[in-house]
Each structure stands twice: as structure tokens, then as C-alpha cells.
């Protein structure tokens, strides 16, 4: 892997920054070069929250991601904001539980994951972010899932250690979902709603 430039976007409270930081931490644990840049200020309080993560085998010049190779889109406004930025043949993982409109881009790989629904099924709607992350990692193995699980233990404060398991489960479910739906037949059925095919 040369360099993966990722934008993660959603609304405040969806754990967008946690996803970014987690990915970054896992990258560091695997001795990759990593940067993470959150959006800050008014935007993190309620509106669109997003962050930039770069994971690379080489030194990272600029931490600012203007041409993401991948995006994880957790809500509708984020789709509008970042859809156009993703590079050609780039990856866009979309939380299809909340993003109901079709993506316009035809030249990128679109992976819908009903992250919020899966999280609800796991009994904790707040781990939708980890479901989406699992889905992303199924397509782009920038870091090992085992490393991500270990990273969760490192960065979750002790008072939240009881949440490690559900986070781990959510990542696994997201990965399983994307892998299971990757066969062509299911794929075309699933993406129809997104204006594909």
C-alpha cells in the first residue's frame, strides 16, 4: 500500500473523530506513517463533523486530504459535501441506514452498509461508526482488524472498557456484511436503490 487518504464524515455525536483516531492509532501500531486531522470549531458541535486520515508506507507530506482515495460517509449532508472529492476509482462506504439518496458518481466504488440498523441490532446504535469501519476494512485492509481491536483497548478510557466488546463485534459485523454482499448477484440487488445498474 502506498498511501490511503481517507475522509470520514457524519454529524457530531456519531463518533466520527473516534473512527479517525482509531484508524490512525492502529496504523501507528503497525509502524505505518499516519496523520489524523479533525475538523474543528463550530462544525464539530452539531453540524457536519469530518476528519482526514492518511495511512502510508512513506513519510506523509501534507496532512490535509483534498483528494481522498476513500471516504466513509455516515449521513446525508456528508454525501453532498464529499462525494465529488473522492478520486476516480476511489472507494466510498456509505451508511445506507441514513443516506437514502443515490450517489451521483459512477466512477467510484460504492459500498452501502446499513450501519445504523446493524448497530441497533447489536443493541447500541452508537457503534454504527464501527460497523462502517468494519465495512471499510473489508474493502481496504489498510490495517489488520486485530490491530484495530487492540487499538480500541488502548484509546478507550478505562471508564468505557465495558464497550470494547460491542465495538469489536460491530467491526466484525460490518466486515461480514460487506463480504457477504460482495457476490455480484446480491450486489446488483443491493445497489439498485443507489441508482446503479
Amino acid at each position: 500500500m502506498a498511501e490511503e487518504r481517507i475522509i470520514i464524515a457524519g454529524f457530531g455525536g456519531q463518533g466520527i473523530m473516534f473512527m479517525g483516531k482509531l484508524l490512525c492509532y492502529a496504523g501507528m501500531m503497525e509502524d505505518r506513517h499516519v496523520t489524523y486531522m479533525p475538523s474543528y470549531g463550530a462544525e464539530v458541535r452539531g453540524g457536519t463533523a469530518y476528519c482526514n486520515v492518511i495511512i502510508s508506507s512513506e513519510e506523509i507530506p501534507s496532512p490535509v486530504v483534498s483528494d481522498p482515495t476513500a471516504a466513509i460517509i455516515m449521513n446525508m449532508p456528508s454525501l453532498a459535501k464529499f462525494e465529488a472529492a473522492v478520486v476516480k476509482k476511489g472507494l466510498m462506504v456509505v451508511n445506507s441506514s441514513l443516506v437514502t439518496r443515490a450517489a451521483k458518481r459512477k466512477d467510484i466504488e460504492l459500498i452501502p452498509v446499513p450501519a445504523t440498523s446493524i448497530a441497533d441490532r447489536l443493541g447500541n446504535t452508537r457503534v454504527a461508526n464501527m460497523v462502517a469501519l468494519g465495512g471499510f476494512l473489508a474493502k481496504r485492509a489498510v490495517v489488520d482488524i486485530a490491530t484495530v481491536t487492540a487499538a480500541i483497548q488502548e484509546i478507550l478510557p478505562a471508564s468505557r472498557s465495558h464497550l470494547i466488546e460491542v465495538n469489536r463485534q460491530a467491526i466484525a459485523e460490518g466486515k461480514i456484511y460487506v463480504e457477504a454482499h460482495s457476490s455480484a448477484a446480491i450486489w446488483s440487488k443491493l445497489t439498485r436503490g443507489f441508482g446503479f445498474a
Partner: peptide
């Protein structure tokens, strides 16, 4: 600049 205050790096 603000970028350097905000970015997270090892």
C-alpha cells in the same frame, strides 16, 4: 498554523 495544532500524529 491551525492545522499543526489540530492534526494528530505520532
Amino acid at each position: 498554523d491551525g492545522v499543526l495544532g489540530q492534526i494528530v500524529e505520532p
